[in-house]
Amino acid sequence: MKPSGRRVRSLFIIVGLSMLALAGCDDPKYMPVLSPQGPVARSEYYLILYSFIVMLLVVLGVFVIYFYVITKYRARPENKDYVPPEIEGNTKWETIWTVIPIIIVIALAIPTVAVTYKLVKPPKVEAATTAATGKSLTIDVIAEQWKWVFKYPAQNIETVNYVNIPAGVPVNFELTASGPINAFWVPALGGMEYAMPGMNLKLWLEADHPGTYQGRSGQYSGRGFAHMTFNVNAQTAADFAKWVQTTQQTAPKLTQQAQDQIQKPGLLSKPLTFSSTEPQ
């Protein structure tokens, strides 16, 4: 039996199978986290990539020592009489492998803290794509059991289970929940944030280009949680302005009956649109 040989082989099998599974998965739709479509997701992606590379170096370093030690010092019939020396420790080496991890942690901590602070501020607006709606857009998000309600306070529009945003404009999602905690997550545009009752958490997201990105709940909230998906439709500034205008003119007002239907635990068969945010 040769453990090292088998280990390497099993590693190859695993990696091979995973590669096979991922073949043809380079479409951004399959790997939203690794193909960011906005500035927020992009800065998170760079951190993921950076930390992965650093960790990969650590893995490679440790694996070299590991395989060297377990093959070279393996008990064999030839070395039956070998009596290992009694070694207490070695201050020089122990210092080295304490200092190296400290340096690695510092190297990781600096960009981490920088980006953590950066993400609470709106992403920088690119002048060329600034939409007519102004510098940014605020949308209130309420997690119901089990649907997502989006209120546009400035536009007096409410949508359920889909949200339209202008591309190239930072959008400030203000998250809350009427009951159980959910997490608002659009992986292609950026990481998640909790939607909690009695709280109002902010999440900045921005889409680079027009397109449809899927969002879902990231926090279990009961029976219908797996179905809490929604589409984020990023539109050009002109299209978005047109959509706002049409909706304000043609969509029905939010009625008490519709409001009750939304708040009752359950799923909806299709997305809804209203031209008011408070029941009339």
């Binding site: 010092y73 393996r74 304490t98 981490t112």
Partner: peptide
């Protein structure tokens, strides 16, 4: 975040100490 990363330091020390316990030993599998 940083306090969590810091746990890697003592854990790394332990991993290396196990590796160096095997180093120059007669490792029976």
């Amino acid at each position: 975040g940083v306090s969590t990363m810091a746990i890697a330091i003592p854990t790394g020390v332990k991993i290396f100490n196990w590796l160096f316990t095997m180093h120059k030993g007669r490792v029976e599998f």
